[in-house]
Design a protein around this nucleic acid. Sequence first.
DNA 1: AATATCTTCAACCGCATGTAC
DNA 2: GGTACATGCGGTTGAAGATAT
Length: 314
Amino acid sequence: MHSMRAPSVTKRMCNSREKESELRRGPWTLEEDTLLTHYIARHGEGRWNMLANYAGLKRTGKSCRLRWLNYLKPDIKRGNLTPQEQLLILELHSKWGNRWSKIAQHLPGRTDNEIKNYWRTRVQRQARQLNIESNSKNFLDAVRCFWMPRLIQKVEQNCCSSPLPTLDSQTQAIASESSPNFTVANSFSSETCPPQNKLAQYSNLASENSSSVTSPNVLSTDFLPISHQPEIVENPASSCPPLLDNTVYNNLPLSDSYYVENSGYDMDGFNPAYVPEIDTFGDSTSECKMAEGNWVFDDDMAYTLWNMNDIWQF
DNA sequence: AATATCTTCAACCGCATGTAC
DNA sequence: GGTACATGCGGTTGAAGATAT
């Protein structure tokens, strides 16, 4: 969507040697975009104030920079974030918080502004609907317990029609930082449709970092592909999908629907049935008590959580 | 069909940091 | 060290479009 701000002109008094300049603000015109694009094609980016002058743009350098980085740059991706990208955002945000530019570095073609907007419009809106703080542990638990499995499900559905993205080595390294068993063998780099267990690897990583749950503010959601056998605590007392780390996992009540045997985490056998379907969700979710928070999903909340597809672009 | 409300996202702002002099 | 300027970042705004009433 184009910016909807009405164009305006700001007059600023400069020092005596400079004439009064007129700086445009608001939406960029096609002509301005063309000027900026052509100038950068010839001279490259950087030195934005000078660039604005020489390109004949009555804009601040900051404005030019922003327009280029967030809109005109050729490698910028358009369209909705893919489930994989959403997963990565959730993962990286759990590590770094609102470090949008840092997060954006790991989503090629996506800008910090876009990710920030995504977070504010989708994630925070969702938190509002649930009447909880978007940066609270309860909310992060909800994200892990409900939405991440759905994203994984979506990834799984999509993966057979198109190859999953390959994580760059730096992102892999970051993942392995908090998940020592993470290996560079990227589960998503397969040229063909990855086997189901790859998705299990992707999801099960959350189970590995039990220390994360002790963090007061951040519940780590290590969520990137691994290629080893994760250690899953066999605990029948859970009604959440096996994305939770061990501590959370151990504190959850029993549910037949989500009880996971060790064999279920054999790398040869990710069973998507562990990721609940909406229509089979039913009673199990109503008992999903979140660790440490005394926060209980009742039926209505569970239903709400699982029907927020619009928010999550499922 | 008209109006109100909500959602989205490009663009702006202020502040922090980096760099050159 | 002090100053000026450039750059980058995260928070916020606000108009257009979408949706609800």
